[in-house]
Design a binder for these strands. Sequence first.
DNA 1: ACCCCAAAACTAAGACCTATAGGTAATTGC
DNA 2: GCAATTACCTATAGGTCTTAGTTTTGGGGT
Lengths: 191, 191
Amino acid sequence: MARAGLTTERVARAGADLADEIGLERVTLSEVARRFEVKVPSLYSHVRSSDDLRAQIALIALQEMADLAASAVAGRSGQQALVALGHVYRDYGRDFPGRYDATQVRLDAETAAASAGPRHASMLRAVLRAYDLSEDEQTHAARLLGSVFHGFVSLERSGGFAHSTPAPQQSWEHILDSLDAMLRSWSARHD
Amino acid sequence: MARAGLTTERVARAGADLADEIGLERVTLSEVARRFEVKVPSLYSHVRSSDDLRAQIALIALQEMADLAASAVAGRSGQQALVALGHVYRDYGRDFPGRYDATQVRLDAETAAASAGPRHASMLRAVLRAYDLSEDEQTHAARLLGSVFHGFVSLERSGGFAHSTPAPQQSWEHILDSLDAMLRSWSARHD
DNA sequence: ACCCCAAAACTAAGACCTATAGGTAATTGC
DNA sequence: GCAATTACCTATAGGTCTTAGTTTTGGGGT
């Protein structure tokens, strides 16, 4: 009965890796236990439930994405920051599909507030600071950017862009370019 | 053992209703069987598996949304069509959350091709016809619109816009308005 | 009316997954 | 080196999915 050295952290990380390998919906406590060569009930000292495991995976993913996003926008502004941020989300969705899916699980209000979610919101606002928008317009713009980033990654992953040309990569670059142009003209249009 | 009158159609519809009531992830064959006052194995004459049930729900949702979208864009063009289409997706996501979630399940290529998915793509293209775009630009634009529509609905549903003002409704209108303006200027910018 | 038979629904059973309760062994701190 | 904590275990119960094989039902042909 040599100890496996489980912690909430390690269990959640194993769950996240598993999600990327086999898909989030197939992540089970049983499979995680198998990975650690441990019996299922042992996991309950570290996660409260199967749903809790998924929430922990979501927290990991949100934090990892926020860290990458922070690096990407550091030292950049305007279009450069916008493009860099966009690439972070798309790349993360491609490289860590299970983790990315986890970011869509519903967290209770308290957990969500303590997550890296607010960091994402503030990063969007940081990027938008270059565009001279009013308070409300900045909110609208942040919601638009969030929608485009998430929507594109989600649709690309679910195969919505398959079987059509040109390659999604081209659309992505074009879209980021267009968003920049749109934001530039926003304050002008809505004065 | 009075017959319950099950069909693939009725089972799938019950699953869809259930998804809206209790959430897609909690839709189980057991629960559907309970609704029909039938034993679980009886369902296997009508759906191949639990995953198949979810796929059937997705097909229903895609078709219902496509029908609503077709009605919305009929007799409209340009900005009016764009706004109407946007409202269809957002309203559907609000009114039928379980069905909407089902539209994100991965369908195998064959099923996807036979689904209403392509109708959605062609409807986006129909709306874009008013904007005088090249073939490739139309594709980019369709992907952008799809991303914004899906992304906004998805984020709003997962609580991403909660706890902040102004109301998402205002952002939505502003965003649709801005997309129209963007598309108008697209062909000019990319000549 | 009756019979027949196709298909609608059932029972039985095995494999997994989640979760709780309560026990044993190993590490930590004194 | 001992006590106490805690990491991990066994046992168990209940739920879901799926397949195999069986019974029942109701409509169509004679």
